[in-house]
Protein backbone atom coordinates (compact mmCIF):
# COMPACT_ATOMS: atom_id res chain seq x y z
CA UNK A 1 0.00 0.00 0.00
CA UNK A 2 1.18 3.53 -0.88
CA UNK A 3 1.73 5.35 2.38
CA UNK A 4 -0.24 8.28 3.67
CA UNK A 5 0.94 10.38 6.61
CA UNK A 6 -0.68 9.19 9.85
CA UNK A 7 -3.30 11.49 11.45
CA UNK A 8 -1.79 14.12 13.77
CA UNK A 9 -2.98 16.04 16.86
CA UNK A 10 -4.81 13.00 18.18
CA UNK A 11 -6.55 13.95 21.41
CA UNK A 12 -9.47 13.15 23.68
CA UNK A 13 -12.36 15.42 24.57
CA UNK A 14 -14.10 14.00 27.64
CA UNK A 15 -16.88 15.80 29.45
CA UNK A 16 -19.48 14.30 31.78
CA UNK A 17 -18.49 10.75 30.91
CA UNK A 18 -18.90 11.30 27.16
CA UNK A 19 -15.57 10.63 25.47
CA UNK A 20 -14.55 11.68 21.95
CA UNK A 21 -11.34 10.98 20.05
CA UNK A 22 -10.40 13.78 17.64
CA UNK A 23 -7.55 14.29 15.14
CA UNK A 24 -6.44 16.63 12.37
CA UNK A 25 -7.52 15.78 8.82
CA UNK A 26 -5.04 14.18 6.42
CA UNK A 27 -5.13 16.11 3.16
CA UNK A 28 -4.77 14.23 -0.16
CA UNK A 29 -5.48 16.24 -3.26
CA UNK A 30 -8.47 14.94 -5.18
CA UNK A 31 -9.04 11.98 -2.82
CA UNK A 32 -11.62 11.33 -0.13
CA UNK A 33 -9.75 10.34 2.99
CA UNK A 34 -11.35 7.90 5.41
CA UNK A 35 -10.34 7.06 8.97
CA UNK A 36 -10.59 3.99 11.22
CA UNK A 37 -10.27 3.88 15.01
CA UNK A 38 -9.22 1.09 17.36
CA UNK A 39 -8.90 0.85 21.15
CA UNK A 40 -6.92 -1.29 23.59
CA UNK A 41 -7.77 -1.64 27.24
CA UNK A 42 -5.48 -2.64 30.08
CA UNK A 43 -6.91 -6.14 29.80
CA UNK A 44 -5.86 -6.41 26.15
CA UNK A 45 -2.33 -5.26 27.02
CA UNK A 46 -1.90 -7.65 29.92
CA UNK A 47 -3.90 -10.72 28.86
CA UNK A 48 -4.70 -10.59 25.15
CA UNK A 49 -1.34 -10.15 23.43
CA UNK A 50 -1.73 -6.38 23.24
CA UNK A 51 -4.56 -6.86 20.77
CA UNK A 52 -6.49 -3.89 19.39
CA UNK A 53 -10.25 -3.82 18.97
CA UNK A 54 -11.87 -1.93 16.05
CA UNK A 55 -14.78 0.40 16.70
CA UNK A 56 -17.04 -0.40 13.80
CA UNK A 57 -19.00 2.85 14.07
CA UNK A 58 -15.69 4.57 13.35
CA UNK A 59 -14.43 2.36 10.54
CA UNK A 60 -13.75 4.17 7.25
CA UNK A 61 -15.46 7.36 8.38
CA UNK A 62 -14.99 10.79 6.81
CA UNK A 63 -15.29 12.66 10.11
CA UNK A 64 -12.21 13.49 12.19
CA UNK A 65 -13.96 12.61 15.43
CA UNK A 66 -15.17 9.35 16.99
CA UNK A 67 -17.49 8.83 19.96
CA UNK A 68 -15.68 6.19 22.01
CA UNK A 69 -17.96 6.40 25.07
CA UNK A 70 -19.52 2.97 24.59
CA UNK A 71 -16.13 1.25 24.52
CA UNK A 72 -14.45 3.19 27.35
CA UNK A 73 -16.68 1.45 29.87
CA UNK A 74 -14.22 0.50 32.58
CA UNK A 75 -12.07 2.64 34.85
CA UNK A 76 -8.75 1.47 33.45
CA UNK A 77 -6.10 2.98 31.15
CA UNK A 78 -6.97 2.77 27.45
CA UNK A 79 -4.83 3.29 24.36
CA UNK A 80 -6.40 4.64 21.18
CA UNK A 81 -5.20 4.83 17.59
CA UNK A 82 -6.47 6.05 14.20
CA UNK A 83 -5.25 5.64 10.66
CA UNK A 84 -6.14 7.20 7.31
CA UNK A 85 -7.05 5.54 4.03
CA UNK A 86 -7.54 7.01 0.56
CA UNK A 87 -8.13 4.66 -2.32
CA UNK A 88 -5.42 2.00 -2.11
CA UNK A 89 -3.23 4.17 0.08
CA UNK A 90 -3.18 3.68 3.80
CA UNK A 91 -1.28 5.40 6.62
CA UNK A 92 0.49 3.97 9.61
CA UNK A 93 -1.47 4.10 12.86
CA UNK A 94 -1.39 7.38 14.69
CA UNK A 95 -1.60 6.63 18.41
CA UNK A 96 -2.86 8.90 21.18
CA UNK A 97 0.06 10.00 23.32
CA UNK A 98 -0.12 8.21 26.67
CA UNK A 99 -3.34 6.64 27.94
CA UNK A 100 -6.87 7.73 28.56
CA UNK A 101 -8.70 6.80 31.77
CA UNK A 102 -12.28 7.98 32.16
CA UNK A 103 -11.49 8.99 35.71
CA UNK A 104 -10.11 12.19 34.16
CA UNK A 105 -13.38 13.21 32.55
CA UNK A 106 -14.40 16.78 33.37
CA UNK A 107 -17.64 17.02 35.35
CA UNK A 108 -19.74 20.16 35.00
CA UNK A 109 -22.29 21.37 37.53
CA UNK A 110 -25.83 20.23 36.61
CA UNK A 111 -28.45 22.50 35.12
CA UNK A 112 -31.07 22.93 37.80
CA UNK A 113 -34.40 24.71 38.24
CA UNK A 114 -35.90 25.20 41.70
CA UNK A 115 -39.65 25.66 42.09
CA UNK A 116 -41.84 26.54 45.04
CA UNK A 117 -45.31 25.05 44.57
CA UNK A 118 -47.34 26.24 47.58
CA UNK A 119 -45.50 24.83 50.60
CA UNK A 120 -43.53 22.35 48.52
CA UNK A 121 -39.90 22.68 47.44
CA UNK A 122 -39.24 21.01 44.07
CA UNK A 123 -36.27 20.71 41.75
CA UNK A 124 -35.86 19.85 38.09
CA UNK A 125 -32.48 18.48 36.97
CA UNK A 126 -31.10 17.76 33.51
CA UNK A 127 -30.88 14.18 32.33
CA UNK A 128 -27.17 13.24 32.14
CA UNK A 129 -27.21 9.47 31.69
CA UNK A 130 -27.27 6.35 33.86
CA UNK A 131 -23.79 6.94 35.30
CA UNK A 132 -24.94 10.08 37.13
CA UNK A 133 -26.46 10.72 40.51
CA UNK A 134 -27.25 14.17 41.91
CA UNK A 135 -26.51 15.42 45.40
CA UNK A 136 -29.02 18.16 46.11
CA UNK A 137 -28.37 20.39 49.13
CA UNK A 138 -31.09 22.68 50.50
CA UNK A 139 -31.46 24.91 53.52
CA UNK A 140 -33.58 27.66 55.01
CA UNK A 141 -32.28 30.97 53.80
CA UNK A 142 -29.73 32.26 56.26
CA UNK A 143 -29.28 28.88 57.92
CA UNK A 144 -26.46 27.46 55.78
CA UNK A 145 -25.20 25.53 58.77
CA UNK A 146 -28.34 23.36 58.79
CA UNK A 147 -28.10 22.07 55.24
CA UNK A 148 -30.01 18.94 54.23
CA UNK A 149 -29.05 16.59 51.42
CA UNK A 150 -31.05 14.40 49.05
CA UNK A 151 -29.50 11.91 46.61
CA UNK A 152 -31.44 11.84 43.36
CA UNK A 153 -30.90 8.98 40.91
CA UNK A 154 -33.71 9.62 38.47
CA UNK A 155 -34.30 13.03 37.11
CA UNK A 156 -36.78 12.71 34.30
CA UNK A 157 -39.41 14.55 36.37
CA UNK A 158 -39.96 17.27 38.99
CA UNK A 159 -38.40 15.94 42.19
CA UNK A 160 -40.04 16.72 45.55
CA UNK A 161 -37.37 17.82 48.01
CA UNK A 162 -39.32 18.85 51.10
CA UNK A 163 -42.23 20.81 52.50
CA UNK A 164 -41.51 24.42 53.48
CA UNK A 165 -42.57 26.55 56.39
CA UNK A 166 -45.05 29.28 55.57
CA UNK A 167 -43.43 32.40 54.09
CA UNK A 168 -39.82 31.22 54.56
CA UNK A 169 -37.11 31.37 51.90
CA UNK A 170 -35.29 28.23 50.90
CA UNK A 171 -32.08 27.86 48.89
CA UNK A 172 -30.88 24.92 46.81
CA UNK A 173 -27.69 23.88 45.04
CA UNK A 174 -26.72 20.61 43.38
CA UNK A 175 -23.70 18.68 42.15
CA UNK A 176 -23.38 15.50 40.10
CA UNK A 177 -21.72 12.34 41.42
CA UNK A 178 -20.39 9.52 39.24
CA UNK A 179 -20.11 6.34 41.28
CA UNK A 180 -18.10 4.49 38.59
CA UNK A 181 -15.18 6.91 39.03
CA UNK A 182 -16.07 8.08 42.55
CA UNK A 183 -15.92 11.76 41.60
CA UNK A 184 -18.33 14.68 41.77
CA UNK A 185 -18.73 17.98 39.92
CA UNK A 186 -18.66 21.46 41.34
CA UNK A 187 -21.91 22.90 42.67
CA UNK A 188 -24.48 24.61 40.51
CA UNK A 189 -25.43 28.21 41.16
CA UNK A 190 -27.55 28.50 44.32
CA UNK A 191 -31.22 29.24 43.64
CA UNK A 192 -33.64 30.50 46.31
CA UNK A 193 -37.44 30.49 46.40
CA UNK A 194 -40.08 31.38 48.98
CA UNK A 195 -42.91 29.32 50.38
CA UNK A 196 -46.45 30.65 50.02
CA UNK A 197 -47.99 32.73 52.80
CA UNK A 198 -46.35 34.93 55.44
CA UNK A 199 -45.63 38.71 55.03
CA UNK A 200 -41.86 39.00 55.57
CA UNK A 201 -39.92 40.68 52.74
CA UNK A 202 -36.55 39.24 51.70
CA UNK A 203 -34.09 39.77 48.94
CA UNK A 204 -32.45 37.00 46.96
Amino acid sequence: DALLPPPQNISILSTNMKHFLTWSPVIVQGEAVRYSVEFQGEYEREYANESWIPICECSLIAATECNITEDISATVAYKLRVRAEAGAARSEWGTLKGFFNRITTSLTPPLMKVIADGYHLLVELEEMGPAFQFWVLYWKKGQESRMQQKVVKEVSHMIHLDTMEEGLGYCVKAQTYVEAINRSSGFSQTQCVRAQGGTSMWLV
Binding site: G118, Y119, H120, E154, H157, M158, I159, H160, T163, M164
Partner: peptide, 25 residues
Amino acid sequence: SVLNKKTKKRWFFSISNTTMVVPWL
Protein backbone atom coordinates in the same frame (compact mmCIF):
# COMPACT_ATOMS: atom_id res chain seq x y z
CA SER B 1 -45.91 10.31 41.35
CA VAL B 2 -48.43 12.78 42.84
CA LEU B 3 -50.51 14.84 40.40
CA ASN B 4 -52.42 17.93 41.51
CA LYS B 5 -55.49 17.75 39.27
CA LYS B 6 -56.17 21.49 39.66
CA THR B 7 -52.71 22.81 38.79
CA LYS B 8 -51.80 19.79 36.62
CA LYS B 9 -48.40 19.77 38.34
CA ARG B 10 -46.82 16.36 39.00
CA TRP B 11 -44.28 15.73 41.73
CA PHE B 12 -42.01 12.73 42.10
CA PHE B 13 -40.72 11.03 45.22
CA SER B 14 -38.20 8.18 45.55
CA ILE B 15 -38.74 6.21 48.76
CA SER B 16 -37.58 2.95 50.24
CA ASN B 17 -40.23 2.44 52.90
CA THR B 18 -43.81 1.62 52.10
CA THR B 19 -45.68 4.55 53.64
CA MET B 20 -45.55 8.22 52.85
CA VAL B 21 -47.49 11.34 53.86
CA VAL B 22 -47.62 14.43 51.68
CA PRO B 23 -48.52 17.31 54.01
CA TRP B 24 -49.42 20.94 53.42
CA LEU B 25 -51.73 20.35 50.47
